[in-house]
Amino acid sequence: MFRQFYCCAVFLASITAMVVANADELNLKEVASGVFVHQGIHAMPDKLNRGEIANIGFIVGDRCVAVIDSGGSPAQGKALKAAIKDKTKIPICHVINTHVHPDHVYGNIAFKEPGVSFVGHRKLAQAMASRAPYYLQKAERDLGLAIKQEDFIVPDKPVDSSMVLDLGGRKLLLTAHGPAHTDNDLSVYDDKTKTLWLSDLLFMGHVPVIDGSLLGWLKELDTLKKIDAKLAIPGHGPVASEWPRSAEAETRYLEMLKSDIRGYIKQGKTMEQAMAEVGHSARGDWQLFDDFHKRNIATAFAELEWED
């Protein structure tokens, strides 16, 4: 009987080792000088991918390194840290969290040490505090992760409206946006390579997810599109693309939701009707459409019905 247990244990351990090995070999691409991005996958967070689905990465200065989003699990955070140490001897000084969603912040704990500051939108702490009780439950149920309260690390450098981080030889301009993808979105602009790290303000391939404000997002996009950037880095999608052209599909989708849902509200139709009917012709344009499109309608409907 012991032997059976032993075999079983060895088998399980080898599966676990395989998964860990995958996480360890974090695939990073240098999209511009000193700008490294790992491309996530278009999938719902689950126990197989452990929520490791978002684009994450880092920017290397002469003096120090800024991590931009720490990963979807503590293990991915560790893998990212290992990859940084592998590429450079320059120390990590900042972890920038672009917003509260788990696929972007669950790696935080791997970077917690003296000399590393955590940077986020002024509303990030509040968003973490109010979502944590629910997210912790979900991490266990859906991702098989034992996340603890202290694994969310609130920013010690909150960004009120904007902030410049000097990494030595390059400056990052951080902008705290109004409600858009969430109510705590932060974008990062690297002046040296003119790279605009938009994270989830830009979705490509993966259907955009509205967890903030539809109208706000369109407004922020208008402003962002005027930025003179060579490259844009989305939160989900190809690691780098042309700006502002890469925002076209997202803008079209959000504009469609805005005009169709306004029409439904004007005709006195209900949220349920809108969820069943609006915008399904866009299904072919996006991945994970069935997972997020209806929720986008609900969120947008609840916002737009207060317009007049």
Binding site: M44, P45, D46, H101, P102, D103, S130, R131, Y134, Y135, K138, D142, P179, T182, D183, V209, I210, D211, G212, S213, G216, D291, F292, R295, T299, A302, E303, W306
Partner: peptide, 20 residues
Amino acid sequence: KASGGCSAPIGADLEAAMAR
């Protein structure tokens, strides 16, 4: 079934609701 993904049972834009 509560949905997966990044959702949480909290309003998306509480500040707007507070303001009105």
